[in-house]
Design a protein around this nucleic acid. Structure first.
Lengths: 113, 113
DNA sequence: GGCATATTCAACCATCCGGTTGACCAACGT
DNA sequence: ACGTTGGTCAACCGGATGGTTGAATATGCC
């Protein structure tokens, strides 16, 4: 969990990882379930999850033989503050967000195809 | 100016580039002046500027034999919206921002040393 | 024209990144 | 105890990234 601007921004720079975060926004998920919609190997997804965890963006917690992934959105705060300082963007537009999320999800899956 | 989440986030993932953006927040600058505080070659800085321009984060405009770099903070909007949607962060804390900026600047210069 | 200044281009290098595969370890069911 | 399921590790591969240097281009000055 280095959680520097470097690690956070570069974690967010990959579409697969952003898609994973969007999925985790819905609910906590097991690694295998996270991997399911993507075409890449489980090992590759596992690496992505490690990068997200290293950036502090998710937590992984073993329960039995399943490892549960949980979003840790607080890790984005410093990066968000950094970005916002560059322009006084209007408060979150949820409609716009929905659209982004959908684009992102399909993008992520396409990328994995 | 692709200006996708991919290009914006990966442009922001480099400390030198973030330092450059912070410098441009103060004022428009010529390429040579942007390069001055860094220890890396002018060519390297020029590449960083290309990446920032490609992400839509800056504009480069030739005036005489000098190329002026200008911040284009609007390019951060979609990325900012994306991030904010993950947690309802409080409105920008300017004090916190000042601190980040200073850290970033010294980081960037250290990184270049 | 000829020189200096501002910036990019091109080739090259080492390292990082995202992916793969196969071996490995852990925990559950029977 | 044994096989199965969940997940990571290790080695490898090709392509991107950040840096370098030296040549090339463009503009301004005398």
């Amino acid at each position: 969990m280095a959680q520097t601007l470097d690690t956070v921004f570069s974690a967010l720079a990959d579409p697969t990882r952003r898609a994973i975060l969007a999925m985790l926004l819905e609910d906590d998920m097991a690694v295998t379930d996270v991997a399911e919609p993507f075409q890449i190997s489980l090992a590759a997804v596992s690496k992505h999850l490690s990068i997200l965890a290293e950036a502090g963006l998710i937590l992984r917690e073993r329960r039995g033989r399943v490892i549960w992934c949980k979003l840790e959105p607080d890790a984005m705060r410093s990066a968000s503050v950094w970005m916002q300082s560059f322009g006084q963007f209007e408060p979150v537009d949820l409609d716009a967000f929905e659209r982004f999320l959908e684009d992102e999800l399909s993008e992520g899956e396409d990328a994995a195809t």
